[in-house]
Design a protein around this nucleic acid. Sequence first.
DNA 1: TTGACAAGTGAACGAATGTTCACTAGAATC
DNA 2: GATTCTAGTGAACATTCGTTCACTTGTCAA
Lengths: 215, 215
Amino acid sequence: MFTDLREEAVQPELNARQQEILDFLVRTIRERGFPPTFREIAEHCGFRSTQAVSRHLEALEKRGCIHRESGARTIRLANGLLEESDSTEPVRMVPLIGEVAAGRPILAVEDIEDRLPVRQDWLPVHERSFFLRVRGDSMAEGIQAGDLVLVDPGVRVHRTEIVVAMIEDEATVKRFYPEADRVVLRSDNPAYADIVVSRDFRVVGRVSALIRKYR
Amino acid sequence: MFTDLREEAVQPELNARQQEILDFLVRTIRERGFPPTFREIAEHCGFRSTQAVSRHLEALEKRGCIHRESGARTIRLANGLLEESDSTEPVRMVPLIGEVAAGRPILAVEDIEDRLPVRQDWLPVHERSFFLRVRGDSMAEGIQAGDLVLVDPGVRVHRTEIVVAMIEDEATVKRFYPEADRVVLRSDNPAYADIVVSRDFRVVGRVSALIRKYR
DNA sequence: TTGACAAGTGAACGAATGTTCACTAGAATC
DNA sequence: GATTCTAGTGAACATTCGTTCACTTGTCAA
């Protein structure tokens, strides 16, 4: 019973063989455009029987990694396994949020206006990064109303860097000056006064890039 | 001989049947993840023989629409046919030029530092558009040294718009104020004096967007 | 009319392919 | 030590699947 419990917990993990076969499936489908036959899989693994392949595929199907129909070359990858290629691919579609709504997860699907392409090797982004359209009243120098800023949540923010902060349910773009027991949010433009906050705010993320459209 | 010539010219076109089969191939591969068999194609077209399918596929292969290997379900679509779905969301790779060199075509291959993805439906670009890295001494307000500006050559430029102009073999980013027999290039920043030019310059293109990386 | 050609039928064939069954070897469990 | 489980072998089998051949039908040009 004890071991049963532990094995249940380990179930989602994949065997070394199963992983090897799954990788081979992904690679073959990507390169040749159609799945391999049992014998091609066997040859790749060094098997001399198709029976071993059959059982491994059965296991992979039981864990939801693949789907199968009857017939030759009818292995289909589960959702997400083929699209995983996007993590390899240098261009990632980053969502654009028009406005950060209060009390909702930032990346709520309903709030995604659009998606813009970003080359990951040129401008590092991660799963939770997003573009935010800057409102008129929250500018740092060189940032104008209507600009799109790329926000990276969960990234360590250093002094003087530009951040997006939520203050009273509104997103603001300012420079970040942490102090002993408070934080000063400053605009590069001296016409705007500093904003001093202590607890009633939270940093959404660091601004790592900007896009502006003219006309 | 006359008809021969005409048939030669029509060759790249696809038959109604061939188009039907090609569409079926694309749809099947997209939905099921692997190509159909000859008999599945026959059933879809209403054929009662696989021979018809065989000849149509042969024609499709001869025209470069598909590739085939021996074996079951080994039809692969030619490049571009599967990605045609991307044409719904066209991302174009726009070259990035570090510096506009004098006396050379702007888009000389050797000068292309990189390529950045742009969604055409979101930000119109054309064949000759490129990104230019802004030098330190040619700023308009809201544009900083190191920013990348998207330049559209061959687009009609209107008064007050931002342009990239070549002045004495150097690229400059300024606002465009045409007058009777001369052109004033003005920086939004009043610290920079106007540049008045008459003949010794040329407008490279209109600035339609800007990208800035922080850090 | 004749001939050429493209399109499709029908059946048969053989190779490719997934499935099944009996068996072996090793490791873990009782 | 006996049992169970996993992993793999080897061969035989039935089906699927692409290929081939002979034949029919309709169209178009000479």
